[in-house]
């Protein structure tokens, strides 16, 4: 399955026209201990670069933006009781939601693993 990354530190894994979305391991490390994740409602229409979710650490709330347009099919209910899953396994068990993608051409704006690794290396002056 193809995996994509955004400059806003989201990852997106594609299976047909359904993408599983979460925040990257780099993002969870930067945020620190995650205490609450607010997920979108199933059926919500996401707009690329619009608000999709909110992730809260002890100290602050951070917005998670939609990496693509689409409709929410499912959210990760495990995060409700165990938001720390995002710290433990950001790019696996700590996924946020599944979205049915409207326009696959939007994936072209995203990075592959290698480009993302270079991108975050560039952030660490």
């Amino acid at each position: 399955m193809a995996k994509y990354f955004s400059k806003e530190h989201e990852w997106l894994e594609l299976d047909g026209d359904v993408a599983t979305v979460g925040i990257t391991d780099y993002a969870q490390q930067a945020l620190g201990d995650i205490v609450y994740v607010e997920l979108p409602e199933v059926g919500k229409k996401l707009v690329k670069d619009g608000d999709a979710a909110v992730v809260e650490s002890v100290k602050a709330a951070s917005d998670v933006y939609a990496p693509v347009d689409g409709e929410i099919l499912e959210t990760n209910e495990m995060l409700e009781d165990n938001p720390g899953l995002v710290n433990e396994d950001a790019e696996g068990e700590g996924w946020f939601f599944r979205v049915k993608i409207d326009d696959e051409s939007q994936l072209e704006d995203l990075m592959d693993q290698e480009s993302y690794n270079d991108f975050i290396e560039g952030l660490e002056d």
């Binding site: 620190g32 205490v35 650490s57 002890v58």
Partner: peptide, 12 residues
Amino acid sequence: PVQYPLGVKGEH
């Protein structure tokens, strides 16, 4: 210092 490697929750 806002936090050390232990993290805000661990430090608290």
